[in-house]
Write a protein that binds this DNA or RNA. Structure first.
Lengths: 225, 225
DNA sequence: GTGACTTTGTGCATCGGTTCACAAAAGGAT
DNA sequence: ATCCTTTTGTGAACCGATGCACAAAGTCAC
């Protein structure tokens, strides 16, 4: 006996998960402009991907389109939001209030997607007590207590590189299993803890690599976003 | 007749390029600590990858290791730097001096890798003329002139979403072919222009997806960085 | 020089992801 | 009710990346 098609099979490919937020953003824009339904072709253009890929991605969530018509914008927004877990709100803590931490605390894109900044920490007594984007900066000593008290489940690390692993260990010990790391270090975490990293300097280095190629011999053209 | 092995074949896989900066960072750390040679195994651990992958990546640059010994740290730093184009310095411009633009302008990780912030632009007359991390904020009207005068070849977009495409068009028209985009929009660019995007909110959404899964049924463990 | 040991570089199997291309499904017109 | 048009959902081929496993190449001790 073979498995009889996988309509709502659990196990969405990682590459698909990474694109769902992109589709969601495009769909939100369309909803605002009053668009009621959209074809895979149009949505693909808006999201900057190819339409076959888009359809295959969406098919992993279920059959939410209508052949000959397209997808209902509102309904698709809801389905993707639910799949990504954005129908609940997430308490996020930011550790490290340097330039970057400050920028992240004030970044509107977080709040607008069901993420609520529940706490901001720093080790510097000069900074503790300051008001950053309406939040009181708390001392790193309070880390574990505040995380537990406010139900923080996602932590953003914006500390200096040297402090990142130690803070990481502490938040993991406090029960956090999702970390977004901006510090330029490789974090070591136990199984079951999910770390994503963003390294601004790596992105520039990749651009420099391609830029150098273009300058050297103009016979390659690259476009990836 | 078959092609007789590809020792310094041009055409390094994209996945490899994306990891080279990681290796470089680990190697810099080792050089500072006075380590002279390193095995693929040790370097792989420091960079958070598996050693077979590391060796295959390095083999794309050439045969820079010594069997039975490992890689010479200094030499490898040089080879990777050269390959990435970091032996020259790159003039970078930042457009948009909001929270994020400010943080980027002050980010030490750029300067330390051969990237020099050559200009900072904003449209707001209130901000133009301000001093950000030692740089004079210039008006966006000067964009094209300054880019050309100072030989800017990489532009970082930190503008509001609504302004990003227009600024992008202008910098491309001014001859820039490498763009790092922080605005949450899909940029349209001509062939030959390289765009990389960093979207902070997308990273959080991906974490939320996995976090939701963990909460729902604790039978999957993920770790990807 | 010989042999024991270490570590690289790579052939090969495998896997996940992308793209093509088309049958199946839905809607609208007559 | 039938035909024509549109667009989805997916099977299958393809492509790039990963990881195993080992031969080749080097070092070191004697």
């Amino acid at each position: 006996m073979k498995s009889p098609s996988h309509p709502r099979d659990r196990g969405i490919p990682e590459a698909t998960v990474a694109r769902l937020p992109l589709y969601l953003r495009a769909l939100h824009g369309m909803a605002e402009r009053g668009v009621a339904t959209v074809s895979s072709e149009d949505l693909a253009v808006a999201a900057g991907v190819n339409s076959a890929k888009l359809r295959k991605d969406l098919s992993h969530l279920g059959s939410y389109g209508t052949r000959g018509v397209g997808y209902d914008v509102e309904y698709l927004v809801y389905q993707i939001s639910r799949e990504l877990g954005l129908t609940q709100d997430w308490a996020v803590a930011i550790v490290g209030v340097g330039n970057l931490g400050r920028a992240l605390a004030g970044y509107g894109g977080f709040v607008s997607r069901g993420f609520r900044i529940a706490a901001v920490f720093d080790a510097d007594p000069e900074i503790v007590g300051d008001d950053i984007a309406g939040l009181n900066v708390e001392h790193i000593d309070e880390l574990e207590a505040v995380i537990k008290r406010r139900g923080v489940s996602i932590v953003v690390l914006a500390t200096p590189a040297a402090a990142a692993q130690e803070v990481c260990d502490r938040v993991v010990a406090a029960g956090v299993t999702s970390i977004l790391n901006f510090a330029p270090v490789v974090l070591t975490v136990p199984d079951g803890v999910d770390v994503r990293k963003v390294d601004l300097s790596i992105e520039l280095q990749i651009l420099a690599f391609h830029e150098q190629r273009k300058a050297g011999g103009p016979l390659m053209a690259v476009d990836s976003q």
